[in-house]
Simulated assay, not measured.
Amino acid sequence: MIVLGVDTSGPYTSLGLIDGSNKKELNYRERPFAHSEMINVLFEILMKQTGLSPSSIDLIAVSVGPGYFTALRVGLSFAKALAFSLGIPLISVNTLDALARQAPDVDMPVIALVEAQKDFLYAAKYRKVKGETMREREPALLRLREVREEKALFVGSGAIKFRDELQRLPEPCPDFPSGLTVAASGLERFLSGERDDPVKLEPFYMKLPDIKKHGRP
């Protein structure tokens, strides 16, 4: 099965292609937030470098957030259009799940963090078990003070932003998922029998709480 992975959850664009044991990834990190300009260009280059045609793709996996909302919509629109034109399945991947998958195997929990506004973080907790990444706590919108006392390995853009406070980060620390990780995560969901309705797919969004109501740290 040939799987295309699409990530635009952060400032940069990443596409990954899995074809059995063959893997190829292209990233554009020269200019932030150039998703709409570069995603089709990257896809054309990816097809040329792999010698494949779009019609050979069997499944598209796309990160749906949390992340930068407008950027996510670019990736999701691209993935939807391509899936519909090819008549193939489209499956969503949570950004935090993919980030945790990129963390090294450690004997402690892994917490994936994506920065939100101010000191808020999108967070989810995981455990690495025999090479598999198991989610232990559902995604939530937390403040830094609610995260920093956790005895865990931290990954993601939120971990990088608050590196001094959190300290336990791998080197290098991924900021957002790679296209290959999104492809692998989507393939795993698909093979386990999970399915998404492409028409209903939207970016994963969690509303920030009322800061005045919840007070300052």
Rank of each mutant, 00 (worst) to 15 (best):
D7I: 01
D7Y: 02
P66Y: 15
E44G: 09
L169A: 06
D105C: 04
K24R: 14
S55D: 14
P32Q: 14
Y205H: 15
L142H: 09
R31Y: 10
L4I: 11
E25F: 08
P89T: 15
S92H: 00
G5V: 15
K130C: 09
P203K: 03
S63D: 13
E165L: 09
R127C: 07
E44C: 03
D196F: 01
G65I: 07
R29S: 15
L76K: 09
R29T: 15
E171F: 07
K213N: 05
P89M: 12
I18E: 04
F176P: 00
T181E: 06
I60N: 03
D175K: 06
G16W: 04
R127K: 15
I160Y: 00
E149Q: 09
V114M: 02
P172S: 13
V41R: 06
L180A: 09
L72H: 10
Q117Y: 08
H35C: 14
P170R: 01
E44L: 13
A83V: 14
F69G: 00
G10W: 01
A183I: 06
G10K: 02
L142A: 10
D175W: 00
S92A: 14
P172K: 08
L76T: 14
I18K: 08
I2Q: 11
K130W: 04
M1D: 08
V147K: 06
R137T: 14
R216I: 15
R216W: 14
G179R: 05
E194N: 11
Q102C: 05
D7N: 12
